[in-house]
Design a protein around this nucleic acid. Structure first.
Lengths: 209, 209
DNA sequence: GACAAATACGAGCGGTCGCTCACATTCTAT
DNA sequence: ATAGAATGTGAGCGACCGCTCGTATTTGTC
């Protein structure tokens, strides 16, 4: 796949090492600003300033603000899979439910705590009229992985119920994750336990203990 | 507190019937715009236009955009309590949990479906740096009522656990409500059932069936 | 060293935002 | 009838937005 010019032939844009470094700086700055003020309130000029470059330089590498968020999401998603393995799709669905939840949720929570921008990106853009493909894809990928996980655990579940349960489970996860993210110390530990309890109790009747 | 008679003695602003009507128009228009584009993206000029008045007229009655949201929240909250009675604080906690959930959730869901702006307002403003008192009060009032409800049902619950469970329950409710609001027809019915199931299963071990 | 491509700058364009203000109109109390 | 308060207008201010572009600098290649 990484061979000479197989897929990336559409953009023969040659990039210097300096450019690659700038891209990293910009994404890092974007992550910082996103988590500080949220995606909608984050300004491209502010991101450029945080990266120590001019606005023009930002647009040398990213066509617009959305592209910044999309690429950041891509990288975070890749890093999630790299550092924690295939968390969702690799889970052993024959284990007890509580164990599955631990092995799935702990890495996800840890990753979100370590990369708060990820949490910002999987929370909808709030404005309904936004360009749909914004963070929607990140959301959809995670949702699909959860649905697959549930389907593997309960293969005989009718499709509509499978979808409903999976969507609800993801919603509960995001809601609980928000509580975890906005607390700290002992409280945070408490919410983590609470989130696991909520999901366990919700899923046990459907997936078995 | 504010002494006898009307409580707004600090603002002896005399209001004509026309002014009262304008206020209604403006709040109605604000509710419309909020639910259409969300609170952050709603523009005061747009709200004024939707109400059929000039921007200056809007600021004749509301000092700023936030005041519009706050007053709208106040009125919606009042209407909720008026039309559905004291839904939360009046629930009979000696009934079976499933019944309590029905009597509490059905009015709340119906009200949100009938007043989508309410749903927008109880969803955080997304931007962390926002003026804190924005929708925060509405949120806090509902949270407190839920906590009281849980406390009445389980008086022996230690305070920290009471708080944690109540906050988590409210979070699950909001997450499920979002699914209900963004679906329709049979799917919506399904999510309503799912939300009730999730809350019942989550709360049953703590509150009893 | 020469030359083109890649990178970098930053003033500023066109736009929207929340909000203001000088002024006109309508209502109400006398 | 008339004064003064309440209501109404809408152009536009100042700030900020995402983004552009003419221009300057750095870099890789020969």
């Amino acid at each position: 796949m990484t061979g000479t010019g197989t897929q990336a032939a559409e953009k023969p844009r040659r990039r210097q090492a300096r450019g690659e470094r700038r891209i990293e700086q910009l994404l890092e700055a974007a992550a910082q600003v996103f988590q500080e003020v949220g995606y909608p309130a984050a300004s491209t000029n502010g991101i450029a300033r945080a990266a120590g470059v001019s606005p023009g330089t930002l647009y040398q590498f990213f066509p617009n603000k959305e592209a910044l968020a999309v690429e950041l999401g891509r990288r975070l998603m890749a890093e999630l899979e790299q550092t924690h393995g295939r968390v969702l799709s690799g889970a052993d669905t024959t284990r007890p439910l509580a164990e599955i939840l631990d092995t799935v949720l702990d890495p996800l929570i840890a990753f979100n705590l370590g990369h708060p921008a990820f949490f910002v990106l999987i929370h909808g853009p709030e404005a309904p009229g936004e360009i749909v493909s914004d963070h929607e894809e990140l959301h959809a990928v995670l949702q699909q992985q959860i649905t697959d996980l549930v389907a593997r655990r309960a293969p005989d579940l009718p499709i509509p119920e499978l979808d409903r349960v999976s969507v609800m489970a993801f919603a509960i996860f995001r809601a609980g994750l928000a509580l975890v993210m906005h607390s700290d110390g002992a409280q945070r530990e408490g919410y983590i336990v609470e989130l696991k309890s909520a999901l366990h109790r919700y899923l046990a009747p459907v997936l078995g203990s």
